[in-house]
Amino acid sequence: MSTFTVIRSADRDHWRDSAILSRQSFPATGNFDLEANAFGLLMMHNDDIVSPGEGFDMHFHKDVEILSWIVDGAVHHRDSGSDEITEVRAGMAQHISAGSGVRHSEVNAGGYTSGRTVRVVQSWLPADEKGTPPSHKSHDFAADLAAGGVFQVAGPGSPLPLGTTGAALYIARVDAAPVTLPGSAYVHLYVIDGEVEVAGETLREGDVLRGRDVEKLEVTGQGQVLHWVMDRAITPA
């Protein structure tokens, strides 16, 4: 039988400094045991709003799969494997496989005087294999988002394969017609904007629905949702 837990936006962890507001499904800032707080294979899920010209300077990752969905604005990404700056815009996703180790920076592409913030939803999953060569790839889903309905962003058969088997990410733009999202042993649905009805719950921006042993989810209302499906947990319950 399916079971569900709702985490309201106000109850999620919030971390703020002068440049960044981070709204976290799991306590991530200063937490060095992310796997202990994971749900399914998802061990970090942050919704970050970054001030103009600000961001995350060069920092290190290893043996983690990182998926970023750009909601508003644009990010300039640079990593230790290249001097090239990649711009990832709203409606795009970027996958980083940190592998044996990568240093990278993520900065709001809008300059200090632009007045433009950037909003990014970023997820982390553990890599199946350790020490693989680092890589990153971006893909533009703006046309899929504009068309509405549901589309797959990452995982098997998608434009952004993951180094974590059994996990897949979907985005849905819910409008006049109901949307059906796939289920799995673990599902994590996040409302990016709007108001939707799912599993008998009314969810608004920033709310999370976590489900266990879910066959599928019918979503109605209006809004954009980000939906992870995972076939197992990092540490089996």
Rank of each mutant, 00 (worst) to 15 (best):
R116I: 08
S100T: 06
S68E: 11
W69P: 08
D79K: 03
G99L: 07
A98E: 01
E106V: 02
S100P: 01
N108G: 07
A98Y: 06
G81W: 06
L67N: 03
H139M: 02
A74H: 03
Q122K: 01
G55R: 00
G115Y: 04
A142L: 15
E87N: 00
S68M: 13
M92S: 13
V88K: 05
D79M: 03
H104K: 05
K130H: 12
G73E: 09
D72Q: 12
I85P: 04
E84K: 01
F56W: 15
E65K: 08
F141H: 13
V71Q: 11
V118L: 14
V71M: 07
S82Q: 10
G81C: 12
Q94A: 00
I66V: 12
G99Y: 05
Q122Y: 01
S138W: 03
W69Q: 05
D140V: 00
I70D: 07
G91A: 07
E54C: 08
P126Y: 11
G91C: 06
K62R: 14
G55A: 06
D144R: 11
F56G: 10
M92P: 09
L67M: 13
V64K: 13
D72C: 06
V120W: 04
V121L: 13
S80A: 14
K137T: 06
G55W: 06
A142Y: 04
S100A: 13
M92N: 09
K62L: 13
E106D: 09
S138V: 06
A127C: 10
D79G: 09
A142Q: 14
G55Q: 07
V64Y: 11
K137F: 00
R103E: 08
E54W: 00
H76V: 09
G99M: 03
S135D: 11
V120H: 00
G99D: 10
P126K: 15
Q122N: 02
T86M: 01
G73N: 07
T117P: 02
V71T: 12
H136Y: 11
H77E: 05
P52A: 14
V88N: 02
P134S: 03
E65W: 12
H139K: 04
S114N: 05
P126A: 13
T132P: 08
M92T: 07
G110S: 05
D144E: 15
T132I: 13
V75H: 04
S97Q: 07
K137E: 04
S105M: 04
E87R: 09
V75Q: 03
S51F: 15
D83C: 02
K62G: 10
K62Y: 07
A90Q: 11
V71L: 13
I85Y: 08
G110W: 04
S100Q: 09
V88I: 13
H95A: 14
V102R: 10
H139L: 00
G73F: 06
